[in-house]
Amino acid sequence: MQFSAREDIEAPINSVFEMVADFDRFERMAMRRGIDVRRVTQDIPPVAGTTWDTEFKLRGKARQMTVVMTDCERPAQMRFEANSKGMAGVTTIDLLALSQRRTRLSVDMSLSAKSLPARLLLQSMKLGQARFRKQFQLRLAEFARELEQRYKHGA
Rank of each mutant, 00 (worst) to 15 (best):
G89M: 01
F136C: 10
L58A: 13
D8L: 07
F26I: 02
E55F: 01
R104V: 03
E142T: 11
R101H: 13
S4Q: 13
A144S: 11
L138G: 14
Q129F: 13
D36A: 07
F136S: 14
R63K: 15
G89C: 11
V67A: 04
M29W: 09
V37T: 06
P12Q: 08
V107A: 02
R150H: 09
Q64V: 01
T70V: 15
P45V: 12
F136Q: 08
L116Y: 06
M78L: 15
E148P: 09
E7C: 13
V20S: 08
E18A: 11
S112A: 12
L105Q: 07
L111C: 05
P46Q: 07
S4I: 12
N14A: 11
R145L: 14
S106L: 12
T50L: 02
R131T: 10
V107R: 01
S84E: 03
L140P: 07
M69V: 00
G128T: 05
T103Q: 05
R38Y: 04
E27Y: 02
A144L: 09
D8F: 04
Q2C: 08
R119P: 00
E27P: 04
K114V: 00
F80V: 04
T70P: 01
K126Y: 06
V68K: 01
P46L: 03
L105K: 05
E81D: 14
A141Y: 06
V67L: 07
G86C: 07
L138F: 03
R28Y: 11
F26T: 07
Q129A: 13
M1A: 11
G60Q: 10
D53V: 08
E10A: 13
R74N: 06
P117L: 03
R32F: 07
R150K: 09
S110A: 14
T54R: 05
R101V: 08
Y151T: 02
L140Q: 13
P75T: 00
G34A: 06
A118S: 15
Q137E: 12
S106E: 14
H153C: 06
R119W: 02
I93M: 09
A144T: 05
V47F: 05
A62H: 06
T70F: 00
S112E: 15
Q100Y: 12
